[in-house]
């Protein structure tokens, strides 16, 4: 009973928030609505018994990703109204519906066939413990690869967004550093 109430409440809230994200013309409204939708999605994970996944969803999405977006928005002109593509509305809606039905078929095909045996059954221990055991045995290599991928993404983000990251102060001679400082001072008038 309570599960049904929680499901419908959070389903309505999530759909409303994401609808606002997709349709609003203000970038800040879209950002806030997206952050709220992420928090509401974590409620589904808690209902489904995936406690650790819910906590990760809150920490990573509403914490890290949203903070990154809001930092990124400082660089852009967000007060301006967002212009929209003027395409055929019916084609867009029709294509989206067809694609969504396809996704349902993809997900429900293995359920209909009903031949799947649980490889890693959910046991009596807590969800976090079970996740840890599976993650560090069967999925250890993907875990390490994901760690390297995050490292690469972090370095590329710093290099792309940072200024003067192509020059290394430790590898330059004293004269080059002096020249760079002079150049920077003369450039300040332009900035």
């Amino acid at each position: 009973m309570f599960e049904a109430i929680a499901f419908y409440l959070f389903a309505f809230l999530t759909i409303a928030m994401f609808y606002i994200t997709v349709t609003t013309s203000q970038a800040l409204y879209a950002l806030t609505a997206l952050a709220a939708g992420m928090i509401f999605i974590s409620a589904f994970f808690f209902i489904l018994g995936a406690d650790f996944l819910g906590a990760v969803q809150i920490v990573v999405y509403s914490g890290a990703v949203m903070a990154l977006y809001s930092f990124g928005m400082m660089f852009f002109d967000t007060t301006r109204e967002v212009k929209e593509k003027q395409g055929n509305k019916y084609i867009v809606v029709g294509l989206a519906t067809v694609a969504a039905v396809l996704v349902v078929l993809i997900f429900s095909a293995p359920i209909l066939s009903d031949n799947i045996i649980a490889l890693y059954p959910i046991g009596e221990a807590g969800n976090t413990q079970e996740v840890g055991v599976v993650l560090f045995t069967k999925y250890l290599v993907p875990f390490e690869v994901a760690a390297i991928m995050l490292l690469v993404a972090m370095i590329s983000g710093i290099v792309l967004a940072g200024k003067k990251m192509d020059a290394s102060l430790t590898l330059m001679t004293e004269k080059e550093i002096q020249d760079m400082r002079k150049e920077k001072k003369s450039k300040k008038a332009l900035l």
Binding site: A64, L68, L119, I122, L135, Y139, A146, M149, A153
Partner: peptide, 22 residues
């Protein structure tokens, strides 16, 4: 009753985070 789905969800979250950074 299988934990594999949650594992994939974790990797999807990791990919989403790095996609945002780049």
């Amino acid at each position: 009753g299988d934990l594999t789905g949650q594992m994939f969800a974790f990797f999807v979250i990791a990919i989403a985070a790095s996609e945002v950074a780049v």
